[in-house]
Nucleic acid binder design. Structure first.
Ligand SMILES: [Zn+2]
Ligand SMILES: [Zn+2]
Ligand SMILES: [Zn+2]
Ligand SMILES: [Zn+2]
Lengths: 142, 142
DNA sequence: ATCATTATTGATAAATGTTGTCAACTATGA
DNA sequence: TCATAGTTGACAACATTTATCAATAATGAT
């Protein structure tokens, strides 16, 4: 059960190539791992899981950064405040993270423009963007 | 120019003591540093600044965690995604972070309940809380 | 103010986490 | 198929975080 619909392999390859990056088996392995679990992984977890497949940690770091830059990976916060990476679609969105099963689902259609205008008028701050993360219980855990 | 009004030293001491913690000169020094600059600091910056005062990095780590637990320190993200700590008042709030001068101001009175209800009805997620961070330009940098 | 209690400190070491290097390798477009 | 240029992983170098512990000092009670 995935957070997002399976991403065509060709699309991802194209996105990599567009930036001069190559879509290698190692990078595909990292992506497939994220796609396999909507709860996401910390970097340490990814290296641990992929170690048997002989994928070096340098590659893990590089790939996670690349996927982030392409918008296919976003981070959410753990209870302890550390970052966990989660598969996502490119573009701005918010994340809903389950307190129990840690599943994260992406939410793209929430509008904060009213709030941003309110802040602008109250504080004089010119808001350009935001990061918003929700936590609670997913339907299955409720 | 501080983000927040100066916090009475006695209040902070009391908050520490209430939890069985002691308000030491080292802890006060760390707090004063955060209070002195609304842009906040990364852990590395704090240790660098306080090194001449012979404050060990272990103490810095311990104190930052304690201040966080008491609610007097919150983190924001800088461009690279790393955490910077900023003085704050206990309780839930949002942060407005300036893209240019990095100043962070706390914003306590924004209501997301409407949005949370919308999410609940759209996704079945029972929202319990959130983390919201704005970025843009402060009045001085606009 | 003095004291006994008990948390705190900082130096050091140990453990983790992250980035740099580079020769061998391989995905890509022509 | 081939030349080009990005990628890999082992390893080292570096950075960050946590653990230890004897000496020190803040606290609440007296
Ligand atoms: Zn759940
Ligand atoms: Zn973060
Ligand atoms: Zn809020
Ligand atoms: Zn500014």
């Amino acid at each position: 059960m995935n957070t997002i619909d399976a991403l065509p392999k060709a699309e991802l390859r194209q996105q990599f190539n567009k930036t001069g990056l190559r879509f290698t088996p190692q990078r595909e392995a990292v992506w497939r791992l994220f796609e396999s679990d909507p709860a996401g992984f910390t970097i340490a977890q990814v290296t641990a899981v992929l170690a048997p497949q002989k994928i070096g940690q340098a590659t893990v770091y590089r790939t996670i950064r690349a996927l982030q830059d392409l918008g296919y990976l976003k981070w959410v916060h753990d209870r302890s405040g550390e970052h966990r990476f989660v598969a996502s679609r490119p573009g701005h969105s918010h994340m809903l993270v389950c307190r129990l099963c840690s599943k994260a689902v992406e939410c793209s259609d929430c509008d904060l423009s009213v709030l941003e205008k309110l802040i602008a008028s109250q504080t004089g701050f010119a808001v350009e963007g935001h990061h918003l993360e929700f936590f609670g219980l997913c339907p299955e855990c409720s």
